[in-house]
Design a protein around this nucleic acid. Structure first.
Lengths: 168, 168
DNA sequence: TTGGAAAGTCAACAAAGCTGACATATAATC
DNA sequence: GATTATATGTCAGCTTTGTTGACTTTCCAA
């Protein structure tokens, strides 16, 4: 098959067999399960789901972001996001302020209760991430981040980097 | 906040700030989007979704696996898996054979057409994985895998390793 | 002032997960 | 041999989260 024949095309001489690549694929699948498991448990107790988590996460990360911007980051339709956003606003976790310069835009902020939920969710997720980093060792962290970044679609990589820079 | 205070508890002296952990979390989110993007595009053309992909992947990986075993790997209910499996069998991508020793069990196999789809899907995914590995460099691969494995839930880590060993 | 972008809403639908109840075949056990 | 447990399949109904399409309101900008 295309076992190592394709790997030979690499200029870095990475002799990766299909089997090794498959293991990477499966690792992503099982790891993502773990990655979402803790927040999912917390969310299930309230009436929320993963979509709420994502919205709350990125509003916290980029306070005052517009709906349109959030749409681009999450990669969903505005109708889908709107449903989630509406419940979060109704429940008093998110505040939507009309833009000052452009009044068509809505700027999104977490309320006190919103910050509370965000902290609870991200706390669980950070704890797992920290434990994984600790188990894997310091050298592993760099590699982990490098491969993940290389795996992103270019548009999303730009957004990822913009978020990184905005919080330094 | 709990910036580096928590990191100090680590015996490996990993001074990871909450900000660095957040970046890891976001990297997982964006990378997983990229990870599923190519198969999703292929599946959308047919009447299939991610659930079909996962079933086909693991049946290919562990031919003759029972329904119960597949259930455990995927972490879904039998009703959910059954719906997917039924369409795959109807469409002639998967074959279900009654067990020889235990006739209650059904052993699952890919048909020729099933192998074709699997190869198309995994080909796209392997290509992205290979490119990511190449961009990130050889040293990064080990770290990537180590962190992912450490992030899994223990039960899933066991299944991941069992699959690895079964195909050597 | 008119065209178009941003945001929101309504309706209808689909994929994929869930629970609960129940049927059937077979295996294991008392 | 009768009973219990297991593996699988199926029906019905519900939820979350995504999709399209059509439409309105607001309001900036040409």
């Amino acid at each position: 098959m295309s076992d190592r024949s394709t790997a030979q095309h690499s200029d870095m001489l990475l002799f990766l067999t299909d089997e090794q690549l498959r293991q990477g694929i499966e690792a992503m699948f099982f790891a993502y399960q773990g990655f979402t498991a803790d927040p999912d448990r917390i969310l299930a107790e309230m009436a929320y789901g993963r979509a709420h988590h994502r919205a709350v996460h990125f509003i916290n990360r980029a306070p005052g972001t517009t709906v349109n911007n959030l749409l681009g980051i999450l990669g969903v339709t505005k109708q889908s996001l709107n449903r989630v956003l509406r419940t979060l606003i109704e429940d008093g976790l998110v505040e939507s302020r009309v833009g000052r310069t452009d009044k068509r835009e809505r700027h999104l902020f977490l309320t006190e209760a919103g910050h509370e939920l965000e902290h609870k969710l991200s706390g669980a997720q950070r704890a797992r991430m920290r434990a994984a980093y600790r188990d894997a060792g310091p050298e592993a962290v760099t590699g982990f981040r490098a491969v993940l970044e290389a795996m992103m679609d270019p548009g999303m990589r730009r957004k990822f980097r913009a978020l990184k820079e905005s919080s330094t």
